[in-house]
Amino acid sequence: MTALIRSELRKVLTTNTWWLMLLGVVGFTVIALLVNVLVVASATLNGDPQSEQFGLGNDAAGLASYVYTSGQYFGTLFVMLLGALIVTNEYHHQTATPTFLATPRRVRVIVSKLVGAVGIGVAFGLVTMLISVPVGALYLSAHGVGSQLDQPTVLATLGLNLLAYAIWAVFGVGIGTLLRNQIAALVVCLVLKLVAEQAVGLVLTLLSDKLDQHWIMNLMWALPSQASTVMTTATRIPDAPVWYVGALILLAYGLVAGGLGSLITRRRDIT
């Protein structure tokens, strides 16, 4: 199995996609960090009246967590896309033939891809934190709040940030396995992450208003991005489930997609 994982990592590292993706992740992290520090943190620390919309109030630990996880939204998107590409590339470039010749037990290949994608996802997450934690800590210390790095909730948030990168990678591999058509898989990833959320949220809001059933709104937490938010917020969000419920929901999506995809892949003709 380790040999297979090594082979999968090699596949990623011997083509260009990974560093283009990493460049994207770093770019978005830097932009998000600048906005979070210069707009959100600065307004909050100055007690600007308009800073109330950020809801970070006097919570220094919350503010630190917010700054340290800069870039998570787009970073996890890129990791998800990379996860999908790791699978669909095999069909797109017809390398599925040599891959399955080397490893005829196809589920092993998919499991190695999952493990490899998680490793790369976590590595990407670490890179973003190498940028946002030092910069954020310097800024917060300079403004008299301190780095907050001794606060358990802040440390937990950093760990959960990495978990988010890992789980979104699993989700991406799952979608790639299920769909195998490269364009379709990438579009589904983008839609799930960027569009579906708002659309489904709107429908749920309308339904719960029309039917006067407030519980319908809670279904929202089952959506991937909301589950991710629940998971990565160390402090409780009102009305939301506990963080690990979010993690389990998100992981379930990835594993169900990957599991179904594996079943299909096992029987699929490679022609």
Partner: peptide
């Protein structure tokens, strides 16, 4: 077949 390679590798 002679096409089962990733072109960028």
């Amino acid at each position: 077949e002679a096409s089962a390679f990733h072109k960028g590798r």
